[in-house]
Amino acid sequence: MNLLLQLIADGLVNGILFALLACGFGLVYRSARVFHLAFAGLFLISPYVAYVVNVWLHAPIWLAVTLGVVAGAVAGYIVEVLLYHPFFRRKASNSAVMVASLGAFIVIENVLAIIFGNELRTVDRGLASSFDFGPITLTTIQIFQFLIGSAALVALGVAIRKVRLFKAIWALGDEPELVPVLGLPLTRYRKIVFTLSAALGGLAGCLIAVDVGVDPHMGMSYLLIAAVAMLTGGIDRYTGWVLGGVALALLQSLMVWQFSAKWVDLVTFTVLIGVLVVRPQGILGLRKRLEEQ
């Protein structure tokens, strides 16, 4: 029983990280309607920058993470300007953009691999002390992950609800043709979305890297988690993304508890199948299809 409680606590911490990733991914899908596969490479740039700052330049970890997130955001901006925007101007089809995005993912992944090697890199995290909460033990790193992640999520949630900019960004996803007609700066909104998404992903990436390290090939399975979380919770709502992320992490914990850690990845796919089978109408139902055409 204690093991289960411990796993649930771990799951909640992971859930916050998954939720951050889902928000980064969902924000782009919801507004620019881009299936952002490059996100799988993009969110790893931040942890690597943090690694350079921390391990090579011996800067403190908080500075490293901050610089990492900033660098990630800049990378997101660059990807929009150099990759997506030209496609958008050309009115390229969704599948073409998705393939190009995959291409960008491969490029980022392998550039990182050439610079940093294929193996796992860990940042200097000092001696991890831990705290006991009744039967549950959490490391300081986990506590930091949880607090920083939740703070970012809450900030994002408040911003989405209160800041008018986000209303316009949501409208971007519903009526992309309408936005420039209303005199709103569509190009700038897209840049903001991609930058913010990369920053969120980068933060999640850094928080993950501080705990378990980073390797250039881990991006795609996290992207799957992010996309499935977004799908599960419903692609339209921010709360859905967060809940989806947390639910996935908790299910993974249950998997570890019942079976073995090596099947954790299967949870994502099982949930994906579940969503596909149980709620096929939820995403692309008959009616929705009709309205879109």
Binding site: F87, V97, I106
Partner: peptide, 22 residues
């Protein structure tokens, strides 16, 4: 190095292909 470089070339090929000649 070659293995990664090959992948990078594939990646760029996909992007350019989708842009110039889908």
């Amino acid at each position: 190095f070659a293995a990664n470089l090959r992948e990078i070339i594939y990646g760029f090929a996909l992007i350019l292909l989708m842009y110039w000649r889908p």
